[in-house]
Amino acid sequence: MHEIHYEAPTSLEQAVGILAKHGDSARPICGGTDLLIQMRAGVRRPHYVVDVKHIAALTGIAFDPKSGLRLGAAAPCIEIFENATLRRHYPGLVEAAHLIGSLQIQSRASVGGNLCNGSPAADTTPALIALGAVARLVGPKGERQVKVEEFVVSPGRTVIQPGELLVELLIPPPPPHSADAYIRFIPRNEMDIAVVGIGAAITLEGDRCTAARIGMGAVAPTPLFAAKASQALVGKKFDAVAIENAAQLAIEQASPIDDMRGTAEFRRHLVGVLTRRTLERAAERARRN
């Protein structure tokens, strides 16, 4: 029989100790909305599941106007989109978190878990990339920080080493006159994984764009930071020409595949459509800030 042990550490030190001891045969569990399905399908077969929901450092949500947001890796999505401060400062991240699953799933699933699952199609990851979020990891050798766009290395695999644990996501405070947005395309109106998801954060001074970041999901083996498309917007007048230029650069960077959720051709087309729509939505919000 394949035995499974459940561990529920209450401190970071304990958790790291258990994870380090069991190496690849241990897997952290938060809401389990991905892991349990993978275990049932036989995709992952851990012998130790390490519940991280009892560690205070992983469940907090703290916003400071100067230093930004510290988002505990295990904080459930429902606490994010029920948080008025987050709704005001990070509407794009909130709409991404809101898209994940039903009410029941949202009460279990976390943004940290969404990232650690390593899916190229995760909804919250492009939103985090757009915000310039950084992941703080703690492991047996101490702690380190990794940019979210560098966190996933291939489908289902991340930079996390055996024994390491994602503690929190550090998100800078939103500059004045800025806002973010996230839009995904799905074939139905609910229940689907993103065919393409685009997150964008922009800062507008008058009609000029002074900062921009675009994150892309489901268009490559990992979530991407659309660096060229983002750069092209900065310092320019924010108009239809600039948006179209950014959309074309985003399409160039995408390297999607054909699968059951869409063809590569269709996905490239959607990158253009959604980049335009997301930038317009973020800009509309920014003009109000």
């Binding site: 074939p187 139905r188 109106n189 609910e190 229940m191 689907d192 994984i193 699968d259 059951m260 959720r261």
Partner: peptide
């Protein structure tokens, strides 16, 4: 068969 669940075998939901 690639879509062996109701996530990717897309029947209409009540929102559709």
């Amino acid at each position: 068969l690639r879509n062996t669940g109701l996530l990717d075998y897309r029947m209409p939901t009540c929102l559709d």
